[in-house]
Design a binder for these strands. Sequence first.
DNA 1: TCCATAATTCGACGATAATCAAATTATGGG
DNA 2: CCCATAATTTGATTATCGTCGAATTATGGA
Lengths: 118, 118
Amino acid sequence: METKNVIEAFAALAQDTRLAVFRLLIQAGPNGLTAGDIAQQVGVPSSTLSHHLATLERAGLLRSWRVQRQIFYACDYEGTRRLIAFLMEDCCQGRPELCSTDLLQAGACGPAGCGPET
Amino acid sequence: METKNVIEAFAALAQDTRLAVFRLLIQAGPNGLTAGDIAQQVGVPSSTLSHHLATLERAGLLRSWRVQRQIFYACDYEGTRRLIAFLMEDCCQGRPELCSTDLLQAGACGPAGCGPET
DNA sequence: TCCATAATTCGACGATAATCAAATTATGGG
DNA sequence: CCCATAATTTGATTATCGTCGAATTATGGA
């Protein structure tokens, strides 16, 4: 994943409303939710939400499609997977022997300590 | 990982210099690098770098320790692991059957498509 | 103590982002 | 065509962030 895209994705997630939207759409699954539903559930005006949705979509984390008057948004799994993969590459890159691929279970990415104590 | 911390971590990584520093310190390993070395390798004035290092450290992604006149910085593996874990929880939460824990190899987090095409 | 090295903090400026309401666009139905 | 619904875009305002050089702090050595 190109650095510019990574930065854009991190920035997209680095904001309350947008993170809440992202998580909501993860839960909603591939059929997604309409902009109106999202606005209601997250509790922001529709204009503010449109900006945020555009940001997330531009960052490759969401995808959208129109059905008549409603626009559906859902998680872009591919884009999200790429972001995670980038993070894991970075985390393990210089320490492959310490970074289990079973990250959730082993928590093995690096020792608890990183060099002498402060 | 608490939402507030996650947002702070994402924001910390959502900037050119800081992402470069983070990646440099991943490569450097647990013995880290001095602030001076980092500034030189990344190519920014020391004052700018200090701000960035402070941001990354506050976000839980770096740790530091002083050795005489030099301050060493290294990746905080624990903090970084927590960020990745958070992302993976979010990515897989509603779709555990689709999200292999062997993310790097299977790339299995979600189908390529997420609902009807736009 | 004085001078030197390493790094952080301070202060100011320009750039960028979040937010809201109004205006506009896209689609549906009578 | 007119009116309604759903959502985006526009425009303006305020807050936040990145950057730099100067000032300050922390540590070392003569």
